[in-house]
Write a protein that binds this DNA or RNA. Structure first.
Length: 278
DNA sequence: AGCTCGACCCGGACGC
DNA sequence: TGCGTCCGGGTCGAGC
């Protein structure tokens, strides 16, 4: 499930593969619902023949800029991934769209559960205008984050998962950040002291940085997991302290990690380190 | 404003 | 082993 560090890893893999400057000779769509457009044929025609002029990330979205001023905006949801391969590699049944590029290369969007989405826009900022700040935005200080957080009445977990509050966190990194900060997922944001809120911000940055350095989190071995452009796995799963570690000892205090449900999400925490206060 | 639920999907885990 | 059932995950929209 690509969150910010996984999408950033995909972005850097695409740059490394020299995608910028490549021409899109053809766009093929195999599952219409992956494309957010009322007219798939005009979608395809707008992309065909364009050169990729830039690549970006915003929150969990990957952005591919085209020479005609349009941009492709892609959300991988849980199981989406890109595969860059030569044209003659056999097609897996899970490819939802693909782009034929120069030099017999194909960029294939693989998505077993069909939740991933792709759209075309002429104004990326407007399309993604509802997103909150990037966790590493230069103008987002721990103090500003704390001010924003303490203003909210919501529980921490649903708040941190809310992309309009902060862009890029998903289930894994939220659980990890709350554990780092010794905070309970149901704790109300407005109850935190400024110091606690700043500590939470630093914890968020810490776990995201750890995810980025590990090139993402690949849980399990099946085809629904995160894989990099080349098919390589990330290694962040070896550094997780609570996520999917139910029953295993908390690395700080050895208390068994528990799993509960918060905001309809599997939620992992240490019942000793993360105490709910009112 | 914030919550909960349903819809979208289907591999994989689990139960019998 | 094989078959059936249900969970999980991010986001959006609806209803409260």
């Amino acid at each position: 499930m690509p969150e910010m560090p996984e999408v950033q890893t995909i972005l850097e893999d695409l740059k490394q593969a020299c995608l910028i400057g490549k021409k899109i000779l053809k766009m093929s769509v195999f599952w219409d619902k992956t494309i957010i457009s009322s007219d798939i044929s005009s979608f395809v025609n707008t992309i065909k023949g364009q050169v990729i002029t830039g690549l970006d990330r915003r929150g969990k979205y990957l952005i591919i800029h085209l020479s005609n001023g349009h941009s492709l905006v892609i959300h991988f949801r849980m199981t989406g991934r890109f595969i860059l391969t030569s044209t003659d590699t056999p097609l897996s049944p899970y490819i939802r769209f693909l782009m034929d590029l120069d030099q017999n290369m194909q960029l294939r969007f693989h998505d077993t559960r069909k939740f991933g989405r792709c759209l075309l826009t002429q104004n990326v900022n407007e399309t993604l205008s509802k997103l909150g700040p990037e966790p590493f935005a230069s103008d987002l200080s721990p103090q500003l984050f704390a001010q924003n957080l303490i203003r909210k009445k919501r529980a921490l977990k649903p708040l941190l998962l809310d992309q309009t509050f902060l862009a890029g966190l998903g289930n894994i990194y939220v659980d990890e950040a709350l554990w780092e900060a010794h905070l309970h997922p149901l704790q109300q944001a407005c109850c935190l002291s400024a110091t606690q809120a700043e500590t939470l911000f630093k914890a968020i940055q810490k776990v995201l940085r750890r995810g980025l350095e590990s090139q993402g989190t690949t849980l399990g071995i099946g085809k629904t997991n995160f894989y990099r452009l080349s098919g390589k796995r990330g290694s962040h799963q070896t550094l997780l302290n609570v996520f999917r570690r139910e029953g295993k000892p908390c690395p700080r205090c050895q208390t068994p990690i528990i799993r509960t449900v918060v905001a309809q999400r599997g939620t992992h925490l240490c019942p000793h380190c993360q105490i709910l206060k009112n």
